[in-house]
Amino acid sequence: MTKTVTRLAELIHETSSSLPDDAEKALRAALRREAKDSSARLVLETILKNVALARAAGTPVCQDTGTLTFFVSENLRRTVTPERIAAAVAAATERGWLRRNTNDAVTGKSIDSNVCPGAPVIHYTLDAESKVRLIMKGGGSENMSMQFSLPDASLGAGRDLEGVRRAVLAAVQHAQGYGCAPGILGVCIGGDRAAGFEESKHQLLRNLADTNPVPALAKLERRILREANSFGIGPMGLGGKTTLLAVKIGARPRVPASFFVTVAYLCWAARRREISW
């Protein structure tokens, strides 16, 4: 294995087994909010114990090691190549850091190496930050992601930020706890349908404690988070004060005819890492 492949395989191992600090901190803050002897507390205690056990043993935080999506700075294109990323995924799978988790969509057959055209997902991003970012997102949470086309009469949602708010709250109500709450929402306003999902996932890479540089979006993030947490859905949907840990909103340009709001739901097992290369 080349040095680059080894380094990428280690990134995968760390992402799979060790939740980022900000996510763990948000879960601890959630635990403090929940009432004594509540099921919300029991769920959060179990989650935090799980995080500690997985990190100590270097084993997957969740058995569904998910879809691997890499975001690689454009200037690394010649070093962090798709071939090397694929080799790292195959090596990580071989070592048990990833579950055999890829199936051919037509035949249903398992692709044991987790590597084939389309897997893992790789995006080269237009920045010169020299970073490799990885997110591992499980199927249970992916099933809860949604896309809205505004205007939406049933929600009273027009083509403005108030319409975005309504659509995102509808996604929260739809998801309940089924995506393994408390979750994190990555939202994209605009784009075509494909760009919407790409950008909404890209938003999930943000530190949970950061502030959106666009003041109007920062305000909307805070409002939706507060309102979603008043739904009472709670950890794993059993009721409680913490339904979401964070809401992160980005935007992509759109054509005049389309106005999409895309919501990517990430479970509490928010496995993401970035390394500077």
Partner: peptide, 9 residues
């Protein structure tokens, strides 16, 4: 309900 995702626990 067991805790979803809590594979290690």
């Amino acid at each position: 309900q067991a805790v979803g995702g809590a594979a290690a626990v």
